[in-house]
Amino acid sequence: MAFEILRGQILGDFRGNRNPRRRINAGFAQLNSGLRILGYKNGDIPIDEVRGMLLARSPEEAIIDFGEGSEIVYDPLQALVTITPRGESVPLTPQENRVLTLLTGQPYEYHHARELFLQENLELSCFYDWNRAFRVHTFYMRRKLGNNTKGDPYVRSDQDLGYGLFPGTADLNTE
């Protein structure tokens, strides 16, 4: 359905232009045969499915679910953390959201604040004392998120190892 409409629209734009029309027609024929193998009748796909594919968020915008055993669902675009055991949604400030975005890259691991700053061109670095700024933002974020069902904080810090995000009750990833 969707690709048939799209083909009609595109070909309409190239009326009298034989070369692109031929290529486009051949392309749609090949695409339809591929879709037929996937089980779509007449090689076409519903409009809603195509729309969903086109509007899908890019990986950095996607809602992050940390997998099995996780108690947190994080939506970076809305700056919202949903803590499932408590059924609570915690809104983050933009700076807290940035810090958490950095930590989500490798959960269950510790990262040095300096390492995080060097990896990403974090706008916090414009602060004169960025280390303190980072500490303060992380402190408030930890207070907001609270502890997991075992009683350990979701965002942990270690004097030697740095900061880490622990979305579930599992311990440090030592692999």
Binding site: P20, R23, L31, G34, I37, L38
Partner: peptide
Amino acid sequence: AQARNSIEAEQEISLGISAIARGFSSG
């Protein structure tokens, strides 16, 4: 296509969409 283990379908789709893109950009 990868989820359904169909390499043939993946190739057909890839070639088809490339041809459409080339045709559109040439026009």
